[in-house]
Amino acid sequence: MKSLAELAAIRDKMKDKVVIREGSQGIRVVVGMATCGIAAGARPVLNTFVEEVAKADLSDKVSVTQTGCIGICQYEPVVEIYEDGKDKVTYVKMTPEKAVEIVEKHLKGGKVIADYIIK
């Protein structure tokens, strides 16, 4: 069973890291999580981003969070990627599979996947 002792161990491990995270100018992955996004499948997309970012060891650089309705409900699930000094990238009709690819190619490799952005 995942115990509170294990949670305490995570805390001790993270103590030094937290300072670095708060000071860093990272990439923000924002998933539209209003009714439209949720109904279209935003939850597994968001969860996949969290897991893949961790797997790719990008957790210190990339944060995954949510927003409300972006206003293009027919394209949901919609994911916006914000990075300092770069234009916002909007990926549409997202799936967990696309999320895996975006972490690999865009967040890790720095290349926007043109096929998945809004046209």
């Binding site: 949670l7 995570i10 970012v53 957790s59």
Partner: peptide, 16 residues
Amino acid sequence: EVLGDVPLNTVDVIMW
């Protein structure tokens, strides 16, 4: 209470 200042959305915590 256990985590103190470590945010709840830290990846390791979320996985836990």
